[in-house]
């Protein structure tokens, strides 16, 4: 609430602190292969970090437990306590593993709906490993063609390697190689501090609303044209039509 710029993102990660990796799993059975895939990716990130003398703290958001709160948020914009906690975790995350089951040639509705109700600026520049499971390899492109575009919309940073596992992949060591690749990409992006730097240097150049970014975007810029108009000033020269922007 001042004219000065201020850094809305959690500032300067303490190198002694572990990286905060959040797993979002859309799996609905127990055990769930979607959750298992996400856990393996997160576990591999943690292993790789340990080899390099770093720590990773993993939190899991199991969307199955949030199902009714997600549907409530979709129809009423009300965030329940579990949704609020998930938003807090994601807002503070250094990286995200997002794992969805594929149904009917698309990430599950539960998974997509969860991301639909998040503020669009919650994940800006954060590294994300998109991952998906399916009963058949014919769904393989869902992860690159649909999940990447979701995270692109949210201006998140998807890693080069996405991870897809159909039934047969669980018997194939190639899956582990892809998991390993995605894990090291994630770790390097977290180490680089890319997300933090983008957020501290150009946060304002992304689109925000008052109270967005999970309720943390509370900066009010008093130097805008609209604020001058609010304080009795002029909106500028008269136009003939609506402004295109």
């Amino acid at each position: 609430m001042n004219d000065q710029t201020h850094d809305p993102a959690p500032s300067g990660r303490d190198p002694a602190e572990p990286f905060r990796l959040v797993v979002v799993s859309g799996g609905v059975s127990d055990p769930s292969s979607t959750r298992m895939l996400a856990d393996r990716i997160a576990g591999r990130v943690a292993d790789r970090a340990r080899e390099r003398g770093e720590q990773v703290a993993v939190d899991v958001v199991d969307l199955r437990e949030l199902a009714s709160e997600i549907s409530t948020a979709l129809v009423s914009q009300l965030m329940g306590p579990k949704m609020t906690r998930a938003v807090e975790l994601l807002g503070g995350a250094d990286g995200v593993v997002a794992s969805a089951p594929v149904y009917k040639a698309a990430p599950s509705g539960l998974f997509s709906s969860f991301f639909h109700v998040l503020d669009s600026d919650l994940l800006i520049a954060k590294p994300v490993v998109p991952a998906a499971t399916a009963g058949t390899a014919r769904h393989a492109l869902v992860v690159d063609e649909q999940m990447r575009s979701l995270f692109a919309y949210m201006r998140a940073m998807t890693v080069p390697t996405s991870v897809f596992a159909a039934g047969e992949d669980w018997n194939d060591s190639e899956l582990n190689r892809r998991i390993d690749r995605a894990a090291i990409e994630m770790l390097l992006l977290m180490e680089s501090g890319f997300a933090e730097q983008v957020r501290s240097e150009s946060w304002k150049s992304y689109q925000h609303r008052y109270g967005s970014a999970g309720g943390t975007e509370l900066d009010i810029d008093l130097s805008t044209d609209l604020m001058r108009l609010a304080a009795g000033g002029s909106a500028g020269p008269r136009r003939d039509g609506p402004e295109s922007s």
Partner: peptide
């Protein structure tokens, strides 16, 4: 949730009404 409206109310010394019935 619109700071500009709060600003305008404040600028003129008018009242500000928050109909928070759907919002925490």
């Amino acid at each position: 949730r619109t700071p500009e409206i709060a600003e305008q109310a404040a600028f003129y010394g008018n009242g500000f009404f928050a109909n928070h019935i759907f919002w925490p």
